[in-house]
Structure formats: structure tokens, C-alpha cells
Simulated scan of single mutants.
Amino acid sequence: MSEWDYDDRPELPPESGDLHARQFDPNDTWLATAPRELQIEAMRCWFYARYQDPVHDTPYNGSEGGYLFIHGGPFDPNDVIQERFDKTVEFEVMEELIAELHQAEGGDEWAPIDHDDEGWDYEDIYSLRPEEREDPLRMLDERLEQIEDTIKAQSALPGFVIHLLHSAAITALEAYLWDTTSYWVTRDKEVLRSFVKNNKDFAGQKFQLSDVFIVMDDLERKVADYLQTFIWHRLDKVKPLLELTLGINFPEIEKFIPEIIIRHDIVHRGGRDKDGYPVLLTIADVRRLAKLVEEFSQELESQLKKVFPIVPIIDDF
């Protein structure tokens, strides 16, 4: 068993469908004969591309009886999964995933994802990219400062807030890695070339020679979509990707493994570990993690400066 097994979901092959689509929809021909675990993963990806825990984007009014599903719903995984897959997948396979989703955050009442209002427009994504070389580190520092400011603003923090701050530190690390990769891939054509060449999700794609210019014109958009959906806390996957893409020595990741497992338990198990015991954290734990993230970013920036030296600007008087 891998030490990353807390998030050890199987990878779908290219023939399963367009893995970079905003709303993944598996190929039914492939799905009908796929192994059970891949059938479940494909249906899971389909579901999470369309539905979410209502806490993320659904108004709540206690006096009105709870969540106000203004975008439609609530939706029960049992209904939508059977409606979509009953002609392709055996019921007992669907049943396994349905039981998993019923035990997850949304239970039997999930909200639809409003793709028209979630900031997925390509131009919006592009406008949010770092514009300057120092932006990824600057934005990381701002996120870490917000965590520290939240700690200092109150004399005592309840446990669930400490959990949120711990998760926010891991999220800050994820965002930094995303921002850094996005900056170099979109600013340096050689880095983009290296990214595509060394990424099996892209390198293995086939197309007709007559479509080469269409593919090239759409390549940056596909890379942007890919970076949006990449699981950045899977540092075991981030490490080889960035080492091959950027030509750097990726900083040590082992020290983050227990922290990411804790974050997983906070987010996906309601603050309990795999044995059902509460995750106990202190403010000192949050600060220690924030320091790890800061040190990690400084080491990564040092590696980037070796590969991409900063050329001083000389004023010409």
C-alpha cells in the first residue's frame, strides 16, 4: 500500500472519454467492458463534474427549512446515476458508488454545479493567471499572511476554525504550484513544449495530420483546462511533472505527506481519521505547516532561478 493511498483513485485511460472536458462524460462503449474499479471511477468523475455539496454554492436559510436550491435540485445520486448509466453498468456496480456518495458531504441531497457562473470561462481563467514572475510567490505570501492574521485576530479559536486554517495552508501550497506552473507554461514556449511532451495525458493523444493546426491553436486552452483540474496536493504526481517540465529539482515532499492526510480527513471525513477518531490540531500545528509551505516555496524559487536566471534591467540613459 502506498503512503498516498488516502487518495489512491485509479487513473482513467484516454479511451474512457475526454478527460479534459469541463463536464466529463465517459464513452459508453468503453465503459460497458471496463473493469469494475474503472467503471466506478468514471461514474464518480461524471457525477462530481455535475454535482456538489450544497454548502459550496447554495443559499441557506434555517427559517425556510435549510438550503434553497436556486439552481435546481436537490439531486439524489441514486436517481441521477441510474438514469445515466442503467443501460451500461450493472446495478450492483452503481450501487457501490451510490452508497459512497450517500456517505459523502452531500448525502442524498446534492446541488448542481452552475457552470455558467463558476468562472470556468477561458478568458476569465486566463485573466487570473500570474502576469509577473514574482506573482506566484507574492500571492502565496498573501495567503499565508491571511492565515496568520486570522490567528492573531482572536484570543481563542474553536477546533473547526483551526481545521479550516490547516486546510487553507495546504490550499495555499496547491495554489502556488498551480500559479507557478501556469506562469511558466504560458510565458515560455519551450516550457509549454516540454509540458506537453512529458505529460502522458497529452503525449499519447492521436490526431490526423490535417488537424495539426486546429490542435496547435487549441493547445493552450487544453493546457489551461488541464491545470484547472489537476490534483495539486498529489505531490507524488506534481514532482515528476514539474521536474520534467521545468528542469528543476523538486523540493522534498515527504514532510507534507502526514499534513495532506490530515487535510484529507478534515475535508472528506468531517474532521475524523480513518479509524473514526477526531483530528486534534493546535494553532502551533497550523503555524508549523505554514512555515513548511513557506520554506518549500523558497526552495522551489531558488531552483527556478537556477534554470531561469533573473536578468537585471539596465536603464539606458
Rank of each mutant, 00 (worst) to 15 (best):
Q205S: 12
T282Q: 06
E254R: 10
W184C: 03
E132S: 13
D188V: 09
F296I: 05
D57Y: 01
R272S: 12
V279C: 04
A284V: 09
E259K: 05
A153G: 12
N199M: 08
R22G: 14
E83I: 02
W30R: 02
I214M: 14
L192D: 08
D141S: 15
F308H: 05
R287G: 09
G276V: 06
L281G: 02
M94W: 00
N199S: 13
H166Q: 06
W110G: 00
P130N: 06
D149W: 08
D86M: 09
G247K: 05
V80W: 00
L227W: 03
E174R: 03
F296A: 01
D5F: 05
E148S: 14
A104L: 03
L235C: 03
D7P: 02
A32M: 10
P278W: 04
D149E: 15
P77G: 00
H163A: 04
V286P: 00
E299P: 05
E118R: 10
L173G: 03
I147N: 01
Y126P: 07
Q154E: 15
A99E: 13
D315G: 14
D79E: 11
E301C: 10
D57F: 02
L101E: 00
K255G: 07
T229V: 14
F47Q: 00
D5T: 09
V161S: 11
Q298F: 12
H71S: 10
K237Q: 13
S194I: 09
V93S: 02
E11A: 14
L292M: 12
Q23F: 01
E109Y: 00
W178R: 15
V223C: 03
V55G: 07
R50Y: 00
D273R: 01
I257W: 04
A224N: 15
G247W: 03
A168K: 07
E132R: 13
I266V: 07
W232M: 10
P309I: 08
D211H: 09
V89N: 01
P74K: 02
T181Q: 11
R288I: 11
E105N: 12
F207S: 12
A284K: 11
R272I: 08
E41H: 04
C45Q: 12
E37V: 09
Y48N: 07
E95K: 05
I98Q: 00
D218T: 07
G159S: 12
E295A: 11
H115V: 05
L244R: 15
P59E: 06
Y122D: 14
A290G: 06
E15Q: 10
Q154L: 14
M1T: 15
K206E: 14
P136M: 08
Q103W: 04
E15D: 09
I283V: 15
V286I: 05
F230K: 09
T29G: 07
A156V: 15
A169R: 01
K239R: 11
Y183T: 08
F250K: 09
P77A: 01
Q208Y: 13
N61A: 12
M94T: 04
A99I: 10
Y6N: 06
E142A: 15
A21W: 02
F75I: 01
K305L: 14
E90P: 04
Y67L: 07
T282M: 05
H56N: 13
E3G: 12
F202E: 04
F202I: 05
I261R: 08
F160W: 13
E243H: 03
F296G: 02
T181P: 08
F91D: 14
W184M: 04
D8V: 08
D316S: 11
E174Q: 09
P35I: 06
L173H: 05
Q146E: 15
S302Y: 11
T58G: 03
K189A: 14
E148I: 09
E145R: 12
